[in-house]
Nucleic acid binder design. Structure first.
Lengths: 357, 357
DNA sequence: TTGTAAGCGTTATCAC
DNA sequence: GTGATAACGCTTACAA
């Protein structure tokens, strides 16, 4: 690092290195890009020394400007506060690292407006591609990006009218697996709790799978069997009053159930947490004697209080998303693909335990 | 967006806009930079229209190259998996947004080697400053960066020999507050659980504050009083075997304590979680009848099972860090500052509840 | 094997 | 008011 006027440090440039090594920029550039076979070992050594002496680091921005690729990929997430997101992020980072990419992480904090802004900001930095796990980006926001523009890969949720690679949980199988478990355990009163699901594909699929499983179970039981109760319950976490109302509905449900232990199947981690917090606040630390909670998304607290979960392969999802994106960046032109990764059922006390225990 | 050869989309450049608007690049640049007073309203309108028509977005990289500042700031975190980190991240993002900066988030996943690599990578992208919450970066890695080089702000922990702005929890007061509470509640057997603390300033300060509080309490009690037991217990989360050994030590401690309820004061969230998981696995869901857990760092699960916590103002910490950094970026030259933000005690059942309840 | 020169998309300098 | 033109730090023909 050299010192410029006024004692302010200035980073060395490729020209500085060339001068220091007594050569031209071209050779230095060649050295940097590993075209080592075209360089005499003498020159190579001089360049190497000069670089070390000046503590030179090539400027990625300038490099990107010239080459048209700066190795930046954008990662837009709806909510970094959600452990699911963090898991995906870890996978994304690992894959980026392995592929020589640099992730630019943006958290929209559940604000649709933020999502749009960040997406714009990213294109401004000329990211080579984007990975999107968003709440409400619309097809039009991504369109210029999706077709011939910046490649995009969707995570967890597809966007209506946009055909892009997408990777996420195999929702249908995950919910079916959960329901199979619940029914095997003999639960006959099951509520499926989910955030408003019209506009988010993964939620929609999960809810549909829940109803499908329910109907199938009905059919199997036949006429004479004991009735099977099942219902979808919408929990809008973005609206405190709506949450309160839904919590009250839960209370009424438990009241009706009398002493009978009912099951709640949460469509994701945040929903499960909201439910658990309410139940704990309302019925004390022994609330699990009244309701069996089960959730898509595993978490620290699920293990801590013994709640059954369907663990999502978040790391793999993030990793795969980057792999997809990388292929597109390198010019892949296959039609849009979909990777649906399997969830893993982690059975804990909440559902293993029957009333008679 | 215009279409280049082979149908491949190419983003419009400033030259395209100039041509489309029938003017020169200079005027377009002026328009972009808000030097609107120097432009005739006619020209201004034409440029505006051209920009809209071409969906033009200035290239930040090129801009940065020319201006020498690209509005990128690096955020290096030790572990994105830690909720503390996520809290800080949110504050950082909000502040960056407010100040027109773009955070480049790097997660070192608890690997010291990664930290070094990412720090290098960031300088390669010519970030204007860095915010560092790292495990083991050494002073030398940051030195060129800290002095006259890229400004740096430290979060949660200082680095030996490096004088840089730093922001974090007021550790002394936080621990003192926690100890005051524990003693008031009548606990007389208190273990302070902390990760290896020699090399991480915040841990060291917390441990020291624990011992100080203990001694003070001893002094206050005088000779005739019942004995007060207190001990520091190191829990090395990076080493599974060490963790197991420490967990066993916990078991022995509980055994010795007989039926008496003892207190565990965890120096941070991950430590508290490790303890809670062990206790739950070992003593079942009613483990809190044997030990009162309290922790620096609040979390979802702490509320869910009623564990007392000292909440860190993570959002404010992140926000403040960016403010500090911004001042440096703008050329501030004050000596290194330190912001110690106050924690908040959140009392829950774990400590409010006495044995006789 | 090495170097010269043009150009990536901006902004800054200086003329008109 | 406006617009050439020269950088910024790099890569890449093209020459030598």
């Amino acid at each position: 690092m050299s010192i410029g006027p006024m004692g302010i440090a200035r980073r060395a440039t490729i020209s500085d290195v060339a001068r220091e090594a007594g050569t031209g920029k071209t050779s230095v550039s060649r050295y940097l890009n590993g075209e080592t076979n075209v360089l005499s070992s003498d020159l190579r050594a001089r360049i190497e020394a000069a670089i070390k002496r000046l503590d030179y680091r090539p400027n990625q921005m300038a490099r990107g400007l010239k080459r048209g690729r700066n190795r930046l990929v954008g990662l837009l997430v709806a909510d970094i506060t959600n452990p699911y997101t963090v898991g995906v992020l870890r996978g994304v980072e690992a894959a980026c690292h392995a592929l020589g990419l640099m992730p630019l992480v943006c958290n929209a904090a559940n604000e649709v407006e933020m999502e749009r802004r960040y997406l714009q900001l990213m294109t401004t930095y000329r990211v080579e591609g984007v990975i999107v796990n968003a709440l409400g980006v619309e097809e039009e926001t991504l369109r210029p990006v999706g077709e011939g523009g910046t490649p995009a890969v969707l995570v967890d949720r597809s966007i209506e009218g946009l055909s892009a690679d997408m990777v996420g949980l195999d929702n249908g199988e995950a919910v079916a697996m959960g329901m199979r478990h619940l029914l095997e355990q003999g639960f006959d009163d099951i509520r499926f709790a989910v955030q408003p699901y019209e506009s988010v594909s993964s939620r929609r699929l999960r809810e549909a799978a829940f109803r499908a499983a329910l109907e199938q179970a009905h059919a199997l039981r036949g006429a004479g069997a004991e009735p099977l109760r099942g219902e979808t319950m919408v929990l809008d976490l973005s609206d405190a009053e709506a949450v309160a109302r839904t919590h009250e509905a839960v209370d009424r449900h438990l009241q009706e159930a009398g002493g009978r232990r009912v099951a709640y199947f949460a469509a994701n981690g945040p929903v499960a947490l909201s439910l658990a917090l309410h139940l704990h606040a309302r019925y004390g630390s022994r609330w699990q004697e009244r309701v069996a909670l089960m959730s898509i998304d595993d978490s620290e607290w699920a293990e801590l209080i013994g709640v059954t979960a369907i663990r999502q392969p978040t790391y793999a999802i993030g990793y795969r998303a980057v792999e997809f994106l990388h292929e597109r960046i390198e010019g892949g032109v296959e039609p849009a693909r979909e990777a649906m990764l399997a969830g893993e059922l982690v059975v804990r006390r909440s559902t293993a335990w029957r009333e008679e225990d």
